[in-house]
Design a protein around this nucleic acid. Structure first.
Lengths: 245, 245
DNA sequence: CAAAATATGATTTTCGAAATTTATCACTCG
DNA sequence: CGAGTGATAAATTTCGAAAATCATATTTTG
């Protein structure tokens, strides 16, 4: 058998590839919140067929990045003040739990990975200068740093939830950057967070991550709060009693 | 315009309908854990085409009820001891938070709905007799009761997470029933839970819900623990560093 | 005889045309 | 003039055939 031309699983499936690209475009607000997602344009933009698009959109609905209205198509999930507040509170809960568990279970390798992630983020920031936070690459490394803090929590479910929350929250920040580019630097905070976590001081780390998350939200609100409508129209959002125990 | 023949939104979309049916069949273990989901049989079973099936399957993957392996198709998510344990811990965390918030924000209507839900569940149980817990209808009402307890938490995100966790956990119980039909009755527990929540005793309610959830898991393990493989093969399950903040 | 290479059959994945449904707009009627 | 009605256009949704991929059996080669 010949050697694989691709770097192993570069594109498992066309649908999975489109899913990834669309997710990125939604989070980065290239696809703006509230935009109706019509098929003809999207078909051209992503170079796939109806069904394949549909598959990707379906999954994005489950992830909360897209909403579907009956048989009237799909739409990039709008941004709401109430959603951001909800998101912020739940993120605090989940991140605190993850950090607490990571501090209990973390190994030397976990610590090493945190330090490495911080270093990568820090150096890239230095190289990028003033508007570092607009870059996709920094976004990646910064996300990686925060992930490294909680990576040892030993709960795939918590990590999955955290990931989804992180992505949804990210959209609000990316959006707010487009209005005003003022952004309080967080280098010191990140370093303190790292030190505290590695020192295994759970209580302090939980306090720090809470402040970190809440301050980020406050920044978003200061930059773009006025552009957020307070509530979705229907008010009742995700309600449905279900199966049993 | 003529009067609608259907009871309003009975089937928004064929894909949504199939999604719902498949979800039910997976949770009830009609589609057994670990089963490969081949398209030809499924196409016949649900009477839809490839693409429509694919759409439903995609969403079930996002919900954690189905797993997809590269381009080798789909499979009903297997059941693992480690997953059940993870699930149990996270459910305790989320449900405690939801109950605490509901007790803070709950109105009279919220209390009324709890009492109503309990009554419905209680009467159906009396009518069904011994093996009440095998019935789909009871499953529904029991789920509804637990939902009513947390319904006033004012966090769509938490409710959504809770719902997904509930469904995933349910699968383990349904499965365990098939091996042995011994099931400790929980009537008294449910009533105590209701009384405590309505009395707004947050600490006691949190303790009760934790015990309720953990005992349920212990029951499952007693009935079917020996049939669960301890871990997924690959070990690392849901890991991927992502975007940024 | 073992191992690699190839051919064959089964399955998944993708595509674009056909069927439904919704939205738009001109038109009639009260 | 406004509300309802019906036809037309635009969009979504569904379908099944065609292309691509994977698993298996067979043959070839060292």
């Amino acid at each position: 058998m010949a050697v694989r031309a691709e770097p192993r699983g570069a594109e498992e499936t066309r649908a999975a590839d489109v899913l990834q690209r669309m997710r990125h475009d939604i989070i980065s607000c290239t696809l703006k919140p509230g935009t109706r997602l019509r098929f003809e344009p999207l078909k051209e933009l992503y170079a796939v067929s109806f069904s394949t698009l549909r598959e990707a959109l379906s999954r994005l609905v489950a992830e909360g990045l897209v909403v579907s209205e009956g048989q009237r198509g799909f739409m990039v999930a709008p941004l709401y003040l109430s959603d951001l507040e909800d998101l912020t509170d739940v993120r605090v809960l989940i991140d605190q739990e993850c950090i607490g568990r990571s501090i209990i279970h973390g190994t030397d390798d976990w610590e090493a990975e945190i330090i490495a992630a911080f270093h990568r983020m820090d150096r890239l920031k230095a190289r990028l200068g003033e508007l570092y936070y607009l870059s996709d690459e920094w976004s990646q490394l910064h996300g990686g740093f925060h992930y490294s803090l909680v990576a040892a929590c030993r709960s795939p479910t918590l990590l999955d939830f955290r990931d989804k929350l992180f992505q949804r929250a990210n959209r609000y920040q990316r959006m707010s950057c487009q209005f005003r580019a003022k952004w309080r630097p967080k280098d010191v905070e990140h370093r303190t967070l790292m030190d505290t976590v590695i020192a295994r001081d759970a209580d302090a780390a939980k306090q720090l991550i809470e402040r970190h998350i809440r301050e980020t939200t406050e920044n978003v609100l200061a930059n773009a709060g006025q552009f957020l409508s307070p509530e979705p129209a229907g008010f009742a959002t995700a309600l449905r009693p279900v199966a049993a125990e």
